[in-house]
């Protein structure tokens, strides 16, 4: 077998090679050994196995399985309670009356508090509808709301925190105030800042994207602050509801704020990226052929229509444009400079 190993490792002399190759033809046992050794040799992976903590993982699983079992037994209890309750309809009616009374008293208390003591602040909502809207908050922070977006904010901020809620997309310019951080609740995430400029988008289902233009922000799932990611200038964080996690990347797009500035910029950007950004900006479904994917575009489009943009691209790379409603297919392409 030693000779066989030398053979497989490429160390056999010509004479040894001949000898072994002859043996491989005649001896089935040797052939089997050779196959196995070759399989080991060929498949030996360069990367080592990453160690995982199976014990800890199993504890996690047990905890979760335990929870789901507990939930089930809770459901069963709830069902039996229902059965009992049916028999106690009269008691239920009275309890309802009591609940309504309690609620009424609670509301009275709240209203009293707000109007007479003025401690609790009234919550305001601003929705942009079909146009882009500019807001200035009481603390001097400027917010640009993209179309179809809503910002909820208090008329007066609390003493040690400034908190707002965003649905949709907005660009924030936050005034720095010592010891009064600004927190944006967006989908299932929170973004915590002191003073910066950045863009927040919840337009895509189950994702929240934060792109920082200046300063520093902390971005984390609302329920898991320890999973926070610190983003600085030029960085982008993407939160996925599925994994409940923020992934940090370089912001490769120059067009994060295009919805605000109406200016599309590309610098040596591959066409598949260009297509994606055009899709986001114009709300289209552009696909590019394989041959075009690596064509690189450097261009500026200021307040141009899709047709004008496509015409330019078509001219530059000899592209054929097929248009069917929102679906646009770009084919052909000659990228030699």
């Amino acid at each position: 077998m030693d000779k066989l190993i030398k053979y497989i490792a490429g160390e056999a002399t010509d004479a040894e090679k001949k000898e072994i190759e002859a043996l491989l033809h005649t001896d089935a046992e040797i052939r089997k050994q050779a196959e196995q050794l070759q399989a080991i040799w060929d498949n030996a992976p360069e990367s080592t196995v990453n160690q995982v903590d199976t014990d800890k993982a199993w504890q996690n699983i047990q905890a979760q399985i335990g929870i789901s079992n507990a939930e089930k037994s809770a459901k069963i209890t709830a069902k039996s309670v229902k059965v009992i309750r049916k028999k106690r309809t009269r008691w239920r009616t009275w309890s309802r009356v009591a609940a309504v009374l309690c609620l009424g008293m609670g509301l009275t208390y709240l209203v009293y508090n707000q109007y007479f003591k003025g401690e609790e602040s009234v919550s305001l909502a601003e929705s942009s509808g079909d146009s882009i809207k500019n807001l200035t908050l009481i603390d001097g922070s400027k917010i640009t709301l993209n179309k179809n977006s809503t910002l909820n904010y208090p008329q007066k901020f609390e003493e040690n925190i400034r908190k707002v809620t965003l649905e949709g997309e907005a660009f924030f310019e936050i005034e720095h105030i010592d010891n009064q951080p600004f927190i944006i609740q967006a989908g299932k995430t929170e973004i915590r800042v002191l003073g910066t400029k950045f863009n927040v988008s919840t337009h895509k289902k189950d994702t929240v994207t934060v792109t920082v233009e200046k300063g520093k922000v902390a971005f984390y799932p609302s329920t898991q602050k320890r999973k926070k990611v610190i983003l600085t200038k030029g960085e982008k964080g993407v939160f996925s509801a599925k994994s409940v996690e923020v992934i940090e990347t370089k912001n490769q797009s120059l067009n994060t704020n295009a919805w605000r500035t109406k200016l599309l910029r590309f610098e040596d950007a591959p066409m598949n990226q260009v297509a994606q950004q055009l899709n986001d900006f114009y709300d289209l479904e552009i696909t590019v052929s394989e041959s075009l994917k690596n064509c690189r575009l450097t261009a500026k489009f200021s307040e141009k229509s899709v047709d004008e943009v496509l015409e330019t691209i078509g001219f530059m790379f000899e592209v054929k444009v097929e248009k069917l409603d929102k679906k646009i297919i770009l084919t052909g392409g000659n990228c030699t400079p």
Binding site: K204, D206, V238, S240, Q252
Partner: peptide
């Protein structure tokens, strides 16, 4: 998961 990310790295 990857599809969900939509991270265009």
């Amino acid at each position: 998961y990857l599809k969900h990310q939509k991270v265009r790295q």
